[in-house]
Computed example of a mutant assay.
Amino acid sequence: MSLTPTVARAIELLRQAKTVVALTGAGISTPSGIPDYRSPDSGLWEQGDMMEMASIYAFRHKPEAFYKWIRPLATKIFNAQPNPAHKALASLEANGRLQAIITQNIDMLHTRAGSQTVYEVHGSLRRATCLTCHTEVDGPPLLKAHAETGQLPHCPTCAHILKPNVILFGELLPMLTMHLAQQAAKQCDVMLVAGSSLEVAPAGDLPLLAKRAGARLIIVNFGPTHVDREADLLFREDVAELLPQLAAPFRK
């Protein structure tokens, strides 16, 4: 397959870099059937007031509303499979071209695709915690049971409702994870943004952090971002089609 000059240039940037970091958003998982937050008619923000359903205040006062909102999303996440974009990033890491993934996604598809160093800055469904007694448990079995039956997951220690370890509106991001993500952004030679509108801070500001530290910036996203003018290479293409092209030359 012949490559366009822009794709060939992106591959050359990846080849020359000592440290490559990827930043991914909801757009990398839409090919796996997981809706993003902003697309008309299908985005999660189209389904009601997010502050009424996905804030920590709302969870503490009306956890039923949160679980009603997240139930169809959790079902899609647990039924989803990593797509070619996830697998391409895992391949780049396995072949020594990618050092870390910073993701805004909670779906765990990067780790399921085989990626090892993944900073989940918005948390994930991997674990769940009781806000009353702080017991932490494995998340998927409880959330899968909720997706199937609608019954709320309760703490095995004190019987209060468990909260998935995802970051809701009004919560602080995980400090250590965010610190590691910022350090990775500062230290990389190339940052590859894939499927993120970059509208949610502070993760959306990491490309500028990388750029100011001297990194080259490659953006792959259907829609515009506030960092487009800073990009060395900009692709308005499907991540599931383009990322495998970028990864192919490095497969051993």
Rank of each mutant, 00 (worst) to 15 (best):
S91V: 00
V137K: 05
P84R: 15
V137T: 10
A201E: 09
P141M: 02
T132K: 14
S124R: 05
P244Q: 01
E93H: 09
P174Y: 08
A203I: 14
I106E: 08
R212F: 01
V121F: 13
P174W: 10
T19R: 12
T135Q: 04
L206C: 04
I70D: 11
P249T: 07
L3P: 12
N165G: 03
G25E: 02
V137Q: 06
L198P: 03
I102K: 05
G214S: 03
A247Y: 00
R126V: 01
P31R: 11
L98R: 12
H122I: 01
T19I: 10
Y57M: 14
Q16A: 07
A88W: 00
C130T: 00
D228N: 06
Q116V: 08
L172Q: 15
E52L: 15
G33K: 13
K18M: 15
W69S: 07
N79M: 07
R236C: 12
T30F: 05
P153A: 00
L172C: 12
P207V: 07
C133P: 12
L243Q: 14
W45L: 15
Q81D: 03
R15W: 11
L98V: 09
N95R: 04
E120V: 02
P174H: 05
H146S: 01
A247V: 00
H61G: 02
P72Y: 12
L162E: 00
S29Q: 06
T24M: 11
P224K: 14
K144E: 13
R38Q: 05
L198G: 03
G204C: 05
F66C: 02
L198E: 04
M51T: 10
L3A: 13
E230M: 06
L3V: 15
S42M: 13
E52P: 04
L176C: 10
P31D: 10
I56G: 06
M53T: 12
A128M: 14
D205R: 15
E46Y: 08
A54Y: 08
M50F: 15
G114W: 02
E136V: 04
Y119F: 13
C130G: 00
G114Q: 05
Q151W: 01
P174Q: 07
S124A: 07
E120N: 06
I218E: 03
K163T: 01
H160I: 07
D189P: 11
P72K: 10
S115V: 04
L44S: 10
L242E: 14
R216N: 10
V190A: 00
L23M: 13
D228C: 06
A17L: 09
Y119M: 10
E64V: 02
A231V: 09
T4N: 15
L234H: 11
P5N: 14
S42K: 12
K252W: 03
G123R: 01
S32H: 03
S55D: 14
K186S: 03
T103E: 08
D238A: 10
P72G: 09
H146M: 08
Q182C: 15
E52H: 13
I70A: 13
F59S: 02
A80W: 03
N105A: 13
S2D: 15
D138L: 12
I218V: 08
G123Q: 01
L23V: 09
R9L: 11
Q47E: 15
G150Q: 05
K18I: 09
L208A: 00
M51Q: 14
Q187D: 13
E148V: 07
F222C: 05
R251W: 13
A247W: 01
Y37E: 15
M53P: 05
R251L: 14
C158L: 00
S39W: 14
